[in-house]
């Protein structure tokens, strides 16, 4: 399993899965604590109409128009959510629900009506990506890691996802104090000069970047799961924000590796002939980790509410 075949077929999808999971889990920690976890969900859904429109405009499915279309759709969605919340005086969770289902449905309709049969663009792809197809054709074994020619043949999603994951890590590191203080106590943060609105907006933009990049590589199921499951499980492991973020990165990584392996080899262990969707399995594993954390994690009993009565 760990030989040349692994390097060629499994190494890159697995790495891309790990990077995508981490990139989504990092901002997910703060979204969760701000009770904005749904925003990641919303953004990853509205990416679909953005991509379809980008295809209709440019006529190609190359990466950059897709990414720009998706990013534009994400911005439109965030503005729409904010507009509905303010003008309609609707609670933000409901506003998000309305916007992302409507835009996703619009994307499905657009996709059906447009002639996309010639290209690889469909709802299925949008939902669970094509992780298994991101293989490294040019690899002949582990030695290919030192072979410039083979490295040039790496799927472009890997480099893109790596850049985005590093970018997200830097974002969290650079704005750590601002994110932490404005998430815990926005009014106080404002009083000491932190531009809380700008920080909140930067978090949404970072989330959108992670969602769009990850969507391109692994589809929206992983994106939605990774924004919520690893951070939620991590919160149950510790009472320190820094440790929570580390735990979430660990859970994201474990979900990606375990999910990929189970999807590829798991069905065989049960005598089933076909492998299952890696994206679906990765998301499922992250959900199982959360379920186990709910049952067994050390910080699942919190006393915040009980202490209120004193």
């Amino acid at each position: 399993m760990m030989g040349a075949e692994f390097v060629q077929l499994s190494l890159t999808p697995m790495l891309i899965g790990i990077l995508a999971s981490i990139a989504c889990a990092l901002p997910g920690n703060f979204l969760l604590l701000r009770r904005q976890a749904l925003i990641g969900d919303a953004i990853s859904h509205v990416v679909l109409p953005g991509i379809v429109v980008a295809f209709l405009v440019t006529g190609t499915v190359t990466a950059w128009p897709m990414m720009i279309g998706a990013a534009a759709a994400a911005i439109v969605a965030v503005l729409l959510i904010e507009a509905i919340r303010r003008l309609g005086r609707i609670e933000s969770g409901a506003a998000m629900g309305v916007v992302f289902t409507t835009l996703f449905a619009a994307g499905v309709l657009l996709l059906e009506q447009s002639d996309t049969s010639s290209v690889h663009l469909d709802v299925e792809h949008a939902l669970y990506g094509n992780l298994e197809s991101l293989i490294w054709f040019d690899a002949t074994g582990w030695s290919s890691l030192f072979d410039a020619e083979a490295l040039a043949g790496l799927p472009p999603q890997l480099a893109r996802m790596a850049i985005v994951a590093v970018g997200l890590a830097l974002f969290v590191l650079v704005l750590w104090k601002e994110l932490a203080i404005s998430t815990f106590d926005g009014v106080f943060a404002h009083s000491i000069g932190i531009r809380t609105r700008a920080v909140g907006f930067a978090l949404v933009v970072a989330t959108a970047i992670a969602a769009v990049a990850a969507f391109d590589a692994v589809g929206s199921i992983i994106v939605i799961a990774m924004f919520i499951c690893p951070p939620a499980a991590a919160r149950l492991m510790t009472d320190s924000l820094a440790r929570q973020v580390w735990w979430s990165v660990g859970f994201a990584t474990v979900s990606a590796i375990l999910g990929y392996v189970l999807a590829g080899y798991g069905p065989g262990w049960f005598g089933l002939p076909h492998s299952v969707s890696a994206a679906g399995m990765i998301a499922t594993v992250s959900g199982i980790i959360l379920a186990v954390a709910c049952l067994a994690a050390p910080r699942r009993h919190r006393s915040g509410q009980a202490a209120e009565t004193v």
């Binding site: 604590l33 932490a180 998430t183 815990f184 106590d185 009014v187 106080f188 009083s191 000491i192 919160r235 510790t238 009472d239 320190s240 924000l241 440790r243 929570q244 919190r302 915040g304 202490a307």
Partner: peptide, 17 residues
């Protein structure tokens, strides 16, 4: 200036010591 908001204005479940 030091400003102390109302205690109830924050979520004390936040992961912090």
């Amino acid at each position: 200036v030091a400003y102390v908001p109302q205690r109830a204005s924050v979520d004390w479940d936040f992961p912090a010591r």
